[in-house]
Amino acid sequence: MPQFGELEAAIMDAVWQAGKPLRVREILDRLGRDPEPAYNTVHTVTEILFRKGWLAKEKDGRAYRYNATKSREEYVAGLMGEAFAAAGDRSATLARFVEAMRPGEAEELHRLLGEAVQRETPQ
């Protein structure tokens, strides 16, 4: 369901930006989409996100309020951790551009690169 995936991301964006538990109606208002999706659709997708563990819900009167279980930064940090795990375990799962260098190496290479660039550009 690709169209749901996009709506899922939009709902999470709204919840993350609000920074407080939201009702489905409030989520719908904050989506700011044109055309506005149906209330039932947003409700369904919000429930899907709850079942997937992205959202937590608490009872508020007759309705529920939904809040993110983790902040966006925490998820990003998790992704970066996977991409740069020290163990080589994940190297076939993801391909990182470059791993980190030792502190001294970078300075030395910066110097060498500067020299090489100067050689190449005629004065």
Binding site: F97, V98, E99, A100, M101, R102, E105, A106, L109, H110
Partner: peptide, 22 residues
């Protein structure tokens, strides 16, 4: 390569000798 590799804290455990990045 230098910009991306130099901007990160190196992993705690790294093989002896120069890194592959260098």
């Amino acid at each position: 390569l230098l910009v991306v590799a130099g901007g990160r804290a190196p992993a705690a455990a790294m093989a002896a000798g120069g890194s592959t990045a260098a």
